[in-house]
Computed example of a mutant assay.
Amino acid sequence: MFDFTAVVPYLPQLFRGLLSTIGVSFSSIALGLVLGWLICLGRVRSGFWISKICAVYVSFFRGTPLLVQLILVFYALPSVGISFPPVVAAVVALTLNTSAFQAEILRAGFRMLPEGQSEAARDLGMSPLQILLFIQIPQVLRSMLPALTNETLDIIKNSALVSAVAVHELMRTAQTLASTTYRPLEFFVVAGLLYLLVTLLTARAGRWLESRMRMV
């Protein structure tokens, strides 16, 4: 029988796990956006070899499971002398993963730009860097913001996998409490509701930002 009162004494621990989930997720999204831009520009504005290297990167991180990537970062890298604490390893793996998806989202935005726009801007005396910063990037962000918001939601949900590398985020906290109290249903339901709350607030923030950018 479901008994929510069994969870109440452990809510502070669940909220601490939720804060860890939020920190890991949004740190990864922010870093992934920076790396994603670099990869995107490597594919659309660079030479043949750089473009191919970026394409291989994207294919690998989009084509392999996130859990495998987490295990490789946490367990395989120490064998070559590179080791990270669990939280850092989780952020690194999520960043590498989301940067590949964000790069493709941004590249799709570049492909939607009107033909001849760059030539017109150059005729007005703008440099390639000015065209990129003041014309192309704002348009790409504005048009692809819904897709970037969806990627953020996916990372928040996929962050549950970082429990596999001993990060005490929301899911691992729920697993620990469920095993010690023998109340798995209650703790996993509450954890699911907390994930839902964060994703709903994030989606709402994305819609608000989208409406603000349309006004600019």
Rank of each mutant, 00 (worst) to 15 (best):
M112A: 15
P65A: 00
G125L: 00
L96H: 03
I53W: 10
L66M: 10
P184S: 07
Q175H: 12
Y195T: 13
Q13K: 13
G17Y: 08
D3P: 07
Q117I: 06
V165K: 05
S83T: 14
T64C: 03
V198Y: 05
I29M: 11
A205M: 14
L113N: 05
S59P: 00
I39M: 10
G206E: 06
F2G: 03
P146F: 10
L66N: 00
K157E: 10
L129R: 11
A76Y: 09
L185F: 15
V140E: 01
W49F: 14
K52T: 13
G63M: 06
F188E: 05
E151C: 06
F60L: 12
P65G: 01
D154L: 12
A108S: 15
L72E: 03
L132R: 00
M1H: 14
T152R: 00
S127I: 04
S51Y: 02
P78V: 11
T173P: 04
R204L: 14
I71N: 05
L200G: 08
R111F: 14
Q102L: 15
L129E: 10
N158H: 10
L18V: 07
A93V: 08
T181F: 02
K157V: 11
F48Q: 09
T98K: 01
S46T: 12
S25P: 09
G81L: 07
Y195I: 14
S20P: 00
R122E: 12
I29D: 02
F187S: 05
S99Q: 10
M215W: 11
Y57Q: 04
R207A: 13
G36H: 03
N97K: 10
V80H: 03
W37N: 10
S99A: 15
S163Q: 09
F60Y: 11
T98V: 15
L145T: 01
Q130C: 03
L77D: 01
P78N: 06
G206Y: 02
L170S: 08
I53L: 13
Q139V: 04
L153H: 03
Y57M: 04
W37P: 02
V7S: 00
T149N: 05
V24C: 07
F187H: 05
V24E: 08
C40R: 03
K157G: 10
A89C: 06
T199I: 15
S59K: 10
I137D: 00
D154H: 11
L177A: 04
V91E: 01
I137W: 03
R122W: 11
C40K: 06
S179K: 11
F48G: 10
E186D: 08
V167I: 09
F2M: 07
A89G: 15
E104T: 10
T149W: 00
S99D: 05
